[in-house]
Design a protein around this nucleic acid. Sequence first.
DNA 1: CGCCGGTTTGAAGAATTTCAAAGGGAGTGG
DNA 2: CCACTCCCTTTGAAATTCTTCAAACCGGCG
Lengths: 245, 245
Amino acid sequence: LHVQPETHPLSNLVRKLSAIGPLSEEEAAHIYGLPAIVRDFRAGHDLVREGDTPSQACVMLEGLSCRFKIVGEGAKQVFSYHIPGDIPDLQSLHISSMDHTLGTLAPSKVAFVPHRALRNMIVAHPRLGGLLWRDTLVDGSIFREWLCNIGRRSALARIAHMICELHARYDKVGMVEAGTIPFPLTQANLGDAQGLSVVHVNRVMRELKARRLISVSARQLTVLDWEALTDLGDFDPAYLHFTST
Amino acid sequence: LHVQPETHPLSNLVRKLSAIGPLSEEEAAHIYGLPAIVRDFRAGHDLVREGDTPSQACVMLEGLSCRFKIVGEGAKQVFSYHIPGDIPDLQSLHISSMDHTLGTLAPSKVAFVPHRALRNMIVAHPRLGGLLWRDTLVDGSIFREWLCNIGRRSALARIAHMICELHARYDKVGMVEAGTIPFPLTQANLGDAQGLSVVHVNRVMRELKARRLISVSARQLTVLDWEALTDLGDFDPAYLHFTST
DNA sequence: CGCCGGTTTGAAGAATTTCAAAGGGAGTGG
DNA sequence: CCACTCCCTTTGAAATTCTTCAAACCGGCG
């Protein structure tokens, strides 16, 4: 549909943005023209650290990253996962100092786009600016849903909900095949995100497998019963604010 | 400092925005010129409901409101409190459908500003648009801190942290007097925000009073030992992103 | 006075954590 | 190719935090 081939590094950014709002050919072209430095990282690399004042924004091209803070005596709290197409630290465009860290959870390919180029783009294409703003707002919406998750749902429902979210988001960028999504997360990772201990995450995962809702192997997760999983996790994708396409 | 008298209804919005970034005389004047309808509400009134598609934004002038969702079997999860100067549903400017509800927790005075007027303002004063964007990003930052709170801190630390946040934010808009802040929240409200049962909130509050960290009376809360309270709550105001002023 | 929403208390029960240790599996070096 | 290591998963059992249930209390207000 768009000018550039699907092989352009920023093509899944374009796909993601057009998933959250209409994108004209001209706007897409501007995105493809953005200066970007692409780099590969191993799992466990911090892309941006708490306290940094970045001058560029990250675009996830491949792999998985997460945002987190270290709380109190070393407990880690993860706020969000970021899959290809996401711009995890877009907020640094308007908040100079990072209040949390962004790190990879799997080997990842990341594009860095200078803030300057993004600001110019926003001036030239105010509608694109609105889309980016909207993206940061959806970000906030996801945080709110996670608050519901951690604050009010049982461990079983929490994990189920989180799997549903990942599935829905991977689906939106065309990365689901027969109910199977990439799943490089360790059980410790899951615990950090859901405020649970590793031991308990393990028991919950066992339960989900025993109920034949999911199966996990080789860093891939398959949803066996979407209906039952969304039901258990009290999952309603409205908070992801996908456009009606 | 600014053109308009402190008595203008939107003066605490101006004060709040200049607290999160520099504001020129001209920009302040534009804000004072915004069309606004001011209304009073009793406690417990829903200003905007989940599913609504508002065409105006709320500015808190007096009182207290909160954003929340009903999870599963009627459990309420509160995401944020909103004090005078806040624009709790600014996100509706770019996300048409509300994914949560905004309601008052105390008798409140609210100004409604049409989205259209805000959009015009953003076009006329891009820097103001940036400030508003920044405000929504700080919003997200607060959600993240609440995730840390609920996910990783004990009930005692959570409540302490929340009191510290309220104190810091009230302070920023000049509403703290001798360590005393407005505190219309019931213990059920606190529980809804922190993912705790009323019973447990009660015990935590008793403990905080017993430790001589706070005192509560007549819908006012006084911080008796700020140092100890911030320590207990693991509170670092960096996430509120106040400007250095 | 009596009601009502909110607070407080006690006691039992559930969910989840912590501690401790064993079991896999994939990559690495010998 | 095997042995070793490291990281992750899995399991058991005790301890803790917090919830639920139930009921009393309290203060303001009609």
